[in-house]
Amino acid sequence: MRSSKRFAAVGMLAALALIAFMIESLLPPMLAFAPGTKIGFSSVFVSLCLILYGERDALLVLIVKCALGSVFSGNVFSLYYSLPAGLASLLISVLLYRRAFPKVSVLFISVVSAVCHNITQIMMAWALLNMAQVLCYVPVVTLAGAIAGTVTGACVYYAVKALPERLIYL
């Protein structure tokens, strides 16, 4: 059941996700071959929240990160693609953690959800521009997602490994 400690913990994860998002937006593009994609360190906190506290709170962290992130970075337009992409990747993560885990690893789930995130962004671009040309980017963002997912997956896994249970269990 919800406790105020948990509420605070989720709040902190949301804040961390937001900070990670803001910092990453200031850094130069990491994956130069795929413009517009990022490693997405903020998603580490969303995944952590999912693992620790479940999907409702993870969704909360995601929405806070997307909404405030777009406002603070001065790019409200980005909500058009970042929110659907975030939702899609969260949905996939939830499904995989519920149904497939532990037959699949954390790394795998991370990679799949990162790829889904990126492909959803392409879909949203396609919907807006209405030009099939945009779909040529699918292989590019898939590779970017695979790389990003590997990095964030490792972060999630080792973060969970490192966190002592009594601190989290609320």
Binding site: F33, L107, L143, A146, A154
Partner: peptide
Amino acid sequence: TLSSKIALPLCAAMFFFAFSAC
């Protein structure tokens, strides 16, 4: 294990791509 089993194929893939790109 992390470096030899994940990083290696990862680097190989990135090299392959970077090489073909430039």
